[in-house]
């Protein structure tokens, strides 16, 4: 297990390094950063001054390592728009995004795993049909439309929940449902498929032939093997929620990192975009790493050779 962990850790580090290089490069692929900083009306002399002030005239690798060194110590530069530190800006927005992401993935898991298991136990039963219906709906409904419908019914008609903002926990209920429901279908279908496959294996037959109780066969012997692919998928979905919940954050005016990303892209605020890309990518890397560790714990064939 130690060897496996170290190997994964090394891989994660390499991926992080690659990602950092790409996100650094983005600044230069899109445009000349000096021109972007100086603004449209700046003279050539102003641009040149900025270029020298920020060191954009140095070789790109030098700039990269300089940037990397600063990024490692938490300095991601200054936002063109806010004129404040990007890292502080992101940190401030991240708590909202994290709250939403964690509650949404929890909602998705709590909804889809039990439903997927129930559907697999009795294929083609009523519950299987309901699960299928729910997952097709979740996949087909655009989240902005679903969000608006929730606002119309829960906020406007019944006045149960606040429409937008992030002041209380009640503000997070509708965004959680929308974002969680969007992620649920894939998790549910994968749980169902995995469970169906595992239930037809020889070792499940052995477990029954040993006289084990159905609940032990199901939850000990079957579920543990069936959730292995689900873990990897959930990690990816969770990463997506942390980075890609722009639509949901915008509709509910939750000022999270996704919303910040959208704002910064429209404003050409490259350092902020760069910082966000780096942070989101690191999230994915960390999540994948933990998903791999969890899978290794679940499946000894991964951890012991």
């Amino acid at each position: 297990m130690l060897y496996y962990t170290l190997k994964r850790l090394g891989l994660a580090g390499l991926v992080a390094l690659t990602v950092s290089f790409i996100s650094f490069g983005l600044l230069y692929i899109s445009s000349d950063p000096a021109i972007a900083m100086a603004g449209e009306t700046a003279s050539d002399a102003d641009i040149e001054a900025i270029r020298q002030l920020y060191g954009f005239d140095r070789p790109i690798l030098v700039q990269y390592f300089d940037w990397l060194q600063r990024a490692m110590s938490g300095d991601l530069g200054k936002s063109y728009y806010f004129r404040t530190d990007v890292s502080a800006l992101i940190a401030e927005r991240l708590s909202t995004t994290m709250t939403l992401g964690v509650s949404a993935i929890t909602f998705a898991i709590v909804l889809s795993v039990p439903l997927g298991v129930a559907a697999a136990i009795r294929p083609n039963s009523v519950i299987d049909r309901i699960a299928l219906f729910l997952s097709v709906m979740g996949q087909a409904l655009p989240s902005f439309w679903f969000a608006l419908m929730l606002i119309v019914f829960l906020s406007v008609t019944f006045r149960l929940l606040p429409t937008s903002g992030s002041d209380t926990w009640q503000h997070f209920i509708m965004p959680t449902i929308v974002l969680g429901y969007y992620a649920a279908p894939a998790i549910m279908r994968l749980t169902r498929t995995g469970m169906l496959e595992v239930l037809s294996t020889d070792y499940i037959r052995t477990a029954r032939a040993k006289g084990l109780r159905p609940r032990v066969v199901l939850f000990k012997h079957a579920l543990r093997n069936a959730v292995i692919p689900v873990v990897s998928l959930t990690a990816v979905q969770f990463g997506f929620m942390l980075g890609g919940s722009i639509v949901v954050e915008t509709i509910f005016a939750l000022h999270g990192a996704g919303f910040l990303a959208w704002e910064s892209i429209t404003r050409n605020d490259l350092p902020t975009v760069q910082g966000l890309i780096l942070v989101f990518s690191l999230f994915y890397i960390v999540l994948t790493f933990f998903a791999d560790l969890l899978n290794a714990w679940l499946d000894p064939r991964i951890r012991i050779n």
């Binding site: 070792y203 679940l298 499946d299």
Partner: peptide, 11 residues
């Protein structure tokens, strides 16, 4: 059973 390779739970 016939298949010792798959008759025990790998986990």
């Amino acid at each position: 059973f016939q298949e010792p390779m798959t008759s025990l739970n790998p986990a």
